[in-house]
Design a protein around this nucleic acid. Structure first.
Length: 521
RNA sequence: CGGGGCGUAGCGCAGCCUGGUAGCGCACCUGGUUCGGGACCAGGGAGUCGGAGGUUCAAAUCCUCUCGCCCCGACCA
């Protein structure tokens, strides 16, 4: 669209292409326009920029508080895992072996061409694996820490980076290196470990809905989608705006598999020796990608207030030196008043953008970054004791003048209204694109893009979540994955439409309940 | 690893077929006019054209090799 159209109509979008035109490209552009992250010189790895990292720090702060509140302590374990450790759990090896970065040398020497080459004399006796996940290295510590039933439960969390050598990467959604937290716990009984697994799944679901304003379906995965080495894997699954599913977090009940592999044994009250029961659970920087794909629009990022690094940005309208001082003074006072307000226990965070660039440009920058509120303050406002407030959940031209005292009094309410509105909108979207499906033909049609005149592969957004009966046969899963690229995301709990027995739409066999089908990231 | 495509200024690209030694838009810098809104005018800085070798009087352009990246597939938080 031309610049004229931008100026006159205001119908142009800040992000091109739009979601409808090319969803995948739209996503990349939003991440970039919002200044969240960029690709790096290292294949598959991203640079998280200050605004994106500040957002991740908000995720960390809230999650960390929830982990602490449920009794967990933070610790840190090595980046490197001896190869032999990874080999201890058979399924685990198989699951991760093909995507591991391996360290084989500890020194470089000058090569023939003038560059550096690994020194053959400095070859490691045992290669080290850059952790793709830490069950085995943490298990080694747990084995030493646990002697008696009195040492249990052991409730540990680690904030770390991990590396999985992915073939294809996308900023935040799948990068070769990513940041995450991994909880690892050991318990004296199976029941207690299962309870822990469920508890943390619940923590994730609560975080997703209360902070990210992202509704999720929680429940166990099918056997074929389990974490390598786990007895049971639970996930939370969210619907993105292209109607595909994003696995946003997982919680695993590991049984005694890893305890056996790592030798985590304890003496019981009855003086017998037993293997501990362990769990692990994690969420990653992928959540940031999920946030983008849940709330961002064609003008850029939209950050839910409870996760916003800044709740509002103040945009001074500065025209000439005569008013500058009074405007800035007014702003200082306003900021002090706003910072004294608490929003969900946290002081209101304000950015002041007094850069000497055009106001419109500045305003658009913050729209693209997704800051919840934009507050304009100019000479007129100083005279009248007012401000002009724009909400990110409304149009870019939306402006509401209000008395300064009213903003200070109501800002927390406004933010809560936005937070609630984002969740409501996301829930409505998910509901709109979720179907109970009772026939194979309908199922295939639901997940097959409409072909015909004007059909464009790139913009093809179709399907959604299907709740359908399934016999439990893994062969059906494999076929659907192969033919339609559809997988069972999980067996959703707390979804009324999914409860109750029926007939498998693929085989006609009896089915205890419906499961959640979708295409996924 | 298979199938496509691409590496030219910070970003996005043209030039390559028909060799003659580099151009456009945005961004950036300066001055001015504007500005409660993604401005306009004028001027300016910035590239040994991914790397190596070859052909030639002359290579971004032709040839050979090489490195890297992107998209589609298998794999995946």
């Amino acid at each position: 669209m031309s610049k004229q159209a931008q100026q006159k109509g205001g119908t142009d979008t800040a992000i091109k292409p739009t979601r409808a035109q090319d969803y995948a490209e739209w996503y990349q552009q939003v991440v970039r326009a919002a200044d969240l992250a960029e690709t790096s010189a290292v294949r598959g790895c991203m640079v998280i920029k200050p605004w994106g990292y500040a957002l991740w720090e908000r995720f960390q702060a809230e999650l960390d508080a929830m982990f602490k509140a449920t009794g967990h302590k933070n610790a840190y374990f090595p980046l490197f895992i001896p190869k032999s450790f990874l080999e201890k759990e058979a399924e685990h090896v198989e699951g991760f072996a093909k995507e591991c970065a391996v360290v084989t040398h500890h020194r470089l020497i000058a090569g023939e061409g003038g560059g550096l080459v690994p020194d053959p004399k400095a070859k490691l006796e045992e290669p080290l694996i850059v952790r793709p996940t830490s069950e085995t290295i943490i298990g080694a510590s747990f084995a030493q820490w646990v002697q008696s039933y009195r040492d249990l439960p052991l409730l540990i969390n680690q904030w770390a980076n991990v590396v999985r050598w992915e073939m294809r990467t996308r900023l935040f959604l799948r990068t070769a290196e990513f940041l995450w937290q991994e909880g690892h716990t050991a318990h004296a009984t199976k029941e207690e470990a299962e309870e822990e697994t469920r508890k943390m799944l619940e923590v994730y679901a609560t975080f997703a809905s209360d902070f990210m304003a992202m509704p999720v379906h929680k429940g166990p995965k099918t056997a074929s989608e389990r974490f390598p080495g786990a007895v049971e894997t639970y996930s939370i699954e969210a619907m993105m705006q292209d109607r595909k599913a994003l696995q946003a977090g997982t919680s695993h009940f590991l049984g005694q598999n890893f305890a056996k592999a790592s030798g985590i044994r304890f003496q019981t009250k009855n003086e017998t020796e037993e293997l501990a029961w362990t769990t692990s659970w994690g969420v990653s920087t992928r959540l940031v990608g999920g946030l983008v794909m849940t709330h961002a629009d064609d003008d850029g990022m939209v950050i839910p207030p409870r996760l916003a690094p800044a709740h509002a940005v103040i945009l001074p309208v500065l025209r000439g030196d005569d008013t500058r001082a009074s405007v800035m003074e007014f702003i200082q006072g306003l900021v002090a008043e706003l910072k004294a307000v608490r929003y969900h226990g946290r002081p209101i965070e304000i950015e002041i953008d007094a850069r000497d660039i055009r106001g419109g440009e500045k305003s658009w920058e913050w729209i693209k970054k997704g800051v919840p509120l934009r507050i304009e303050v100019g000479p007129r406002d100083v005279e009248q004791g007012s401000v002009v407030v724009s909400r990110r959940d409304r149009g870019p031209r939306d402006k509401t003048p209000m008395p300064r005292v009213e903003l200070v009094a109501n800002i927390a309410t406004i933010l809560d209204d936005m937070q609630a509105g984002l969740l409501t909108k996301a829930e409505a979207f998910r509901k709109e694109h979720t179907r109970g499906i009772d026939a194979r033909g309908d199922f295939d049609a639901f997940f097959t893009p409409a072909r015909g005149a004007g059909s464009d592969e790139k913009s093809e957004i179709h399907g959604g979540f299907a709740l359908a009966h399934w016999s439990g046969d893994p062969a059906i899963e494999a076929e659907l994955k192969d033919k339609l690229k559809v997988t069972i995301r999980n067996i959703p709990e707390g979804v009324a439409e999914a409860d109750g027995p029926g007939t498998c739409i693929f085989s006609g066999a009896p089915s205890p309940r419906r499961v959640l089908f979708a295409k996924a990231y």
